[in-house]
């Protein structure tokens, strides 16, 4: 099904254009908008992005696939990302990740069947003094603003508490 950007998104795009002298430069911000609008960057979402920006689809695809924060598969409503880089690893991030795997019944890299959770092991998130830590990206309805939250100095108990607050 062909996807179309909402009017609000198109207005944001027009505003973005004024920031750069070259129109391809809007690609990253527009891919973020596409992700907000359509949930993830499906082929149709990439096609819509190419159409909106007048950029060849191959170019849009090349850019989109380079960056890890652009989701090329559907992710869960809550994307739980645990940093396991060195500063976090040496203070116990692995135990946190294993606990989450057990609690959610999915492995790192997987999405739960009900599409409520995706669990990922990620690289340093710039919170190294406060490890173990995770970032949770939560999506509401399409077009609704995405919520992004860092949770730091984690313990297993704290993780359980946080999971309890996710709707």
């Amino acid at each position: 099904m062909a996807l179309v950007f909402s009017e609000k998104a198109q207005a944001s795009y027009e505003k973005l254009l004024k920031r750069y002298v070259d129109k391809q430069a809007v690609l990253l911000p527009v891919l973020y908008i596409a992700q907000d609008e359509f949930g993830w960057l499906s082929d149709d979402a990439l096609k819509a992005t190419a159409e909106l920006t007048g950029t060849p689809e191959a170019v849009v695809r090349a850019t989109a696939t380079f960056y890890t924060m652009f989701d090329k598969k559907q992710v869960g409503k809550h994307h739980i990302q645990v940093c396991t880089n060195v500063s976090c690893d040496i203070v116990g991030s692995e135990a946190i990740l294993r606990h989450l795997e057990e609690k959610l019944g999915i492995k790192a890299g997987e999405t739960s069947v009900d599409k409520k959770y995706t669990l990922s092991e990620v690289e340093c998130l710039g919170a190294c003094g406060y490890g173990p830590m995770m970032e949770i990206t939560s999506r509401g309805a399409p077009g609704e603003e995405i919520k992004d939250e860092y949770y730091e100095n984690l313990t297993v108990e704290k993780v359980d508490e946080i999971l309890g607050t996710l709707l």
């Binding site: 990253l28 380079f66 890890t68 652009f70």
Partner: peptide
């Protein structure tokens, strides 16, 4: 940015601003 360590390198960063 959108999740790529190498984009901290100044010329990669420039490419990234250009939408590449």
């Amino acid at each position: 940015g959108a999740g790529a360590y190498v984009c901290g390198e100044e010329t990669a960063l420039i490419e990234s601003i250009e939408g590449k």
